[in-house]
């Protein structure tokens, strides 16, 4: 097999050009490894060769991002490597941002696999952890050997197209993507161990950090609800009997759009639920218990609402990925806007 061709990106400091006073130097190409590239090369052994090193001053990069990136990408492109390694940047903020930017651009624009490394609190980590593999390093160059020992195996796997394990196994910063792994101890034992640490006020590491949920500002109130066109939407899985769209009972991959024009009520035997997360017998007897078409129709006739929109959208919100349901709504909301729907009632089970 041919050797993996590697280009290494480092800053002026690691290239031993100088410290802060030399941070203004523009991008420069040097053949072969420079500075930490020697340790990287040694770790790769016979399998890979560092064909060249791109060096750029941290100030220059961050003050002239576009120009610097263009120049750097052109240097990389000319040498057609299989892999780009950036840094590791440890806790150097501007260097971290540069490493993340270069690594992401190399993989997105040139299709070159890329790995970088930095300390978890490096601002570059927050900015790029979702986009590129960032090996978690110590906060100073004293952690170089550690960093290299984890960057190299991950980089090799990436280039060879092998399966990448979970962050805890490979040593990269979590990417917001959950990856399964088999632990050495069963879950109950891990829970007991964690509790003992917590009781002793020792540090422990949760396996699932709580997420931050994003928020949307409320829309202004509907001014004249008695004239508004109102749509019904549900995650309760109400579908025409027989589930014509084959919406899955759990982790749905699609939603249905059903015409309720003129329907007075969702009759038993004509409508049912596809939801696998609750006892379906009540909804199957009377689907209005989940999707209140009967009452909405009454209110429409009494003039309490302008009209009931003639389509309803339905999916199964049972173990369904938040991303999927978000995509469903982004899709059908276009029609709601086009059709001038002014308010939505969404029911969930």
């Amino acid at each position: 097999m041919n050797k993996i061709k590697v280009v290494h990106y480092i800053n002026q400091f690691f290239a031993q050009i100088g410290g802060e006073e030399m941070a203004h130097v523009p991008p420069e190409w040097r053949d072969g490894p420079v500075g930490p590239g020697l340790a990287l090369g040694a770790a790769f052994g016979e399998e890979a060769q560092i064909i060249g090193t791109v060096i750029c001053g941290d100030s220059y990069f961050n003050e002239n991002v576009e120009q610097a990136l263009d120049t750097i990408l052109e240097m990389v492109r000319q040498h057609q490597p299989d892999l780009l390694i950036a840094g590791p940047a440890f806790n150097a903020g501007r260097y971290g941002v540069a490493c993340g930017t270069v690594a992401k651009a190399a993989q997105d624009k040139l299709g070159v696999k890329a790995v970088t490394g930095m300390y978890v609190e490096n601002p570059g980590a927050d900015m790029f952890a979702q986009d590129v593999y960032i090996i978690s390093t110590r906060n100073s160059a004293a952690g170089m050997r550690d960093a290299v020992s984890r960057m190299v195996p991950l980089a090799k796997k990436l280039v060879k197209g092998e399966t990448i394990g979970a962050s805890a196994q490979e040593g990269y910063l979590p990417r917001g993507v959950r990856v399964n792994l088999f632990e050495k101890e069963r879950g109950s034992k891990r829970a007991v161990d964690m509790l003992v640490k917590k009781l002793k006020d020792q540090p422990f590491e949760t396996e699932y950090p709580m997420p931050n949920f994003d928020r949307v500002a409320p829309q202004p109130a509907v001014q004249n609800i008695n004239q508004a066109k109102v749509a019904l939407v549900t995650s309760g899985g109400i579908v025409p009997f027989g589930n014509p769209d084959r919406i899955e009972s759990s982790n749905a991959s699609r939603y249905g759009r059903y015409d309720i024009d003129g329907l007075m009520d969702l009759e038993e035997g004509k409508w049912a639920t596809a939801h696998g997360g609750y006892d379906p017998s009540y909804a199957n007897q009377d689907a209005d218990r989940v999707l209140p078409v009967d009452v909405m129709r009454e209110l429409e006739m009494e003039g309490k609402i302008g009209s009931l929109f003639h389509f309803t959208y339905s999916t199964v919100g049972n173990g369904t990925a938040v991303k999927s349901s978000k995509a469903f709504a982004e899709d059908f909301v276009k029609e709601l806007i086009q059709e001038n729907v002014q308010a939505v009632i969404l029911t969930s089970t």
């Binding site: 959950r178 109950s188 964690m194 509790l195 917590k198 949920f213 173990g319 990925a321 938040v322 999927s324």
Partner: peptide
Amino acid sequence: VLLTDEYAGQDGSSQS
């Protein structure tokens, strides 16, 4: 200490 499992989507990128 809590014990649970996750429904993070087939690609693992959704809310668990």
